[in-house]
């Protein structure tokens, strides 16, 4: 297994799928000549040409709406919304068009569309450019929402998303492109809608995904030094949500903490905690805790921003509270 960055893993997945299937193409802002705002598609334009690596106007409705149309016409578009904060101006397409078409037209239409985007805070970009609104998108049946926390999952999930006949929102984290991890050799996919135990433990279940997974893994490592054994479950997909491994782990540890970067109200943690209480209430030995962003529009000042974002120390503190 080679150790590569998240950026490389995502780039490799795109490259390999484009080599394999002529119908796969990329469209978005600065994906071509520029090479991608986060350099994920660097070199693609020269290799695949402007037909398959399409720079678009700054017009998110045209990007996602156009992607839907191209998907209906038989292509497999990978559209890119530069950051998830701009997804709001294409909201109609992401939540009200793409996820509705197969069912609303009685199965006539298929929308094999990927919408890649990057979210998350911590880069001093201010309130409009730093959000983690994943839960909003995960609210809608018909859409699949994935958000990987490791390079191996990023590569496998993106390939699965491209091969899927449904619209998939693929949420990356803007501050995680340099994260390194081991990636299997050769062609593989990671199934959408399957959670995974990323670290085994016996005292407490820490449920997370994406950037929250990083925090949770670091917290678990520090807790180990204190003799606390944390099991870390990575959701990887927010819809469909696979609660199986979460519940299995909770039945073993009887204690849980859910970690996410977004706001707690109506969030991913709210959903996971509710499902744990509904499906495994009898196994709870302590109230389940959530670790999330403070309920403020994220400020620019670095110290203020960091104080609003969940930290490793917050995860450790929450674990100690539930023990």
């Amino acid at each position: 297994m080679a150790e590569i960055t998240m950026r490389q893993a995502i780039s490799d997945a795109l490259w390999e799928e484009m080599e394999k299937d002529e119908r796969v193409f990329i469209m978005g802002q600065e994906v071509g000549v520029w090479g991608g705002t986060y350099a994920v598609t660097k070199g693609f334009y020269d290799h695949f040409g402007e037909k398959r690596v399409r720079d678009t106007p700054i017009a998110e409705s045209a990007i996602v709406g156009g992607g839907i149309g191209a998907a209906l016409a038989g292509l497999r578009p990978v559209t890119e919304i530069m950051t998830i904060n701009f997804a709001f101006v294409a909201m109609d397409y992401i939540v009200n068009e793409a996820p509705k078409m197969h069912t609303m037209f009685g199965g006539h239409m298929r929308v094999p569309l990927v919408i890649r985007t990057a979210g998350g805070g911590g880069r001093q970009l201010g309130a409009t450019h730093s959000q983690t609104p994943d839960a909003i998108f995960a609210h809608f049946p018909g859409l699949k929402v994935v958000s990987p926390g490791t390079p191996a999952d990023a590569k496998g999930l993106l390939k699965a998303a491209i091969r899927d006949d449904n619209p998939v929102l693929f949420i990356e984290h803007a501050a995680m492109y340099q994260v390194r991890g081991e990636v299997p050799e050769g062609d593989y996919t990671v199934p959408i809608g399957v959670s995974k135990v990323q670290r085994e433990g016996s005292d407490v279940t820490v449920v997370s995904y994406c950037r929250g997974l990083q925090l949770s893994m670091q917290a678990a490592q520090q807790l180990e030094a204190e003799g606390i054994s944390a099991e870390v479950v990575d959701l990887r997909s927010l819809r469909p949500l696979d609660m199986g491994p979460v519940i299995e782990s909770f039945k073993k540890t009887n204690r849980a903490v859910v970690v996410e970067e977004g706001w707690p109200s109506y969030g991913v943690g709210s959903e996971v905690v509710t499902r744990l209480y509904e499906e495994a209430f009898d196994y709870a030995d302590a109230p389940i805790k959530r670790v999330a962003q403070k309920e403020v529009p994220l400020p620019y000042n670095q110290a203020l921003e960091q104080s609003a974002l969940p930290q490793v120390a917050d995860v450790i503190a929450a674990v100690k509270e539930v023990l």
Binding site: S61, A62, V64, G65, G66, G67, I68, G69, A70, A71, L72, A73, G74, L75, P77, D92, Y93, N96, E97
Partner: peptide
């Protein structure tokens, strides 16, 4: 909303 979708189909 179907106008960008139409452009996408034509792109296809």
């Amino acid at each position: 909303a179907h106008l960008p979708i139409a452009s996408g189909m034509a792109l296809g």
